[in-house]
Design a protein around this nucleic acid. Structure first.
Lengths: 136, 136
DNA sequence: ATCACCTGTAACCATTATAGTTACAACTAA
DNA sequence: TTAGTTGTAACTATAATGGTTACAGGTGAT
């Protein structure tokens, strides 16, 4: 299972799209976490061009239009691990199965991940914003 | 990211389909892990009807035909956590976004998980077996 | 130009999950 | 009957997540 980074990031971006500027303190209060964690994610989102931030003001707006930001963009910005299923290492290569299991699984998992990627790209921040009052 | 449980389970099932009986010791040697871990997975797979085991002999065969066993079956048998993305708890419900973020994300994540489920069901053990020599 | 304020980031701790290890009761094929 | 294996519990080590504190550096406002 992936961490809450994607969920918290979505929360940040939804809030920012309804009100600016927002400091990490205010964001953390709505999210129910601590400001440092929020700033870590803000920093990643800023690097990805999804969020605009400023010292002294905080988050001052989105970096793109909400229909130009997909869950995949957010996921890539904040989640370091891009693998879906972990593969065990140390298989015995003298065994027919052990010799090929790794590349076999990589192939299959790769297809599954591609599919996940496609699904994440389909979902835009704008779709999520429509679930809240005052949605932009 | 999900654990190696699925990968190791696939490894077990591929080996068992090419040779029986196989003890947890022999399986562990090919996989590169320890026998107790293998037995834990064997036990889950047995409960799911995917693997047949016996005291004194070990794994004595698959519980179904390889084209009747999907990655989803294996995944469900051994992976306890069926969630893909974790959702943060403790959002402030006095905030418009905080009040709805959880159910909004659950809805979206649910759709993505359904898709993953469908993909996993498409891939059968028989497909993986064809990657190895002596594939049944 | 100054300054109050926030970001960005590092360091550290607590908690949880995974995986490794040891041990042993229960069962079964021979 | 018995030797050998499963099934499972208990414990440890390790890694990742999330929480917390601290502070250097930058910036908008006056």
């Amino acid at each position: 299972m992936y961490s809450t980074k994607l969920s918290v990031s979505v929360h940040i971006l939804c809030l920012v799209s309804t009100e600016q500027p927002l400091t990490s303190d205010k964001l953390a209060a709505s999210i129910g976490t601590n400001p440092a964690l929020v700033r870590r994610l803000m920093s990643r989102l800023k690097d990805a061009g999804i969020l605009r931030t400023s010292p002294k003001l905080g988050a001052v707006g989105l970096g793109k239009e909400p229909d130009e930001i997909s869950l995949y963009d957010i996921f890539c910005a904040v989640e370091s691990n891009k693998t879906l299923f972990d593969i065990h290492i140390g298989s015995n290569h003298d065994c027919p199965v052990g010799a090929c299991i790794e590349e076999t699984l990589e192939g299959v998992y790769g297809r599954i991940y591609q599919n996940l990627e496609t699904e994440l790209k389909k979902i835009k921040l704008s779709e999520l914003l429509s679930c809240f009052p005052k949605g932009k």
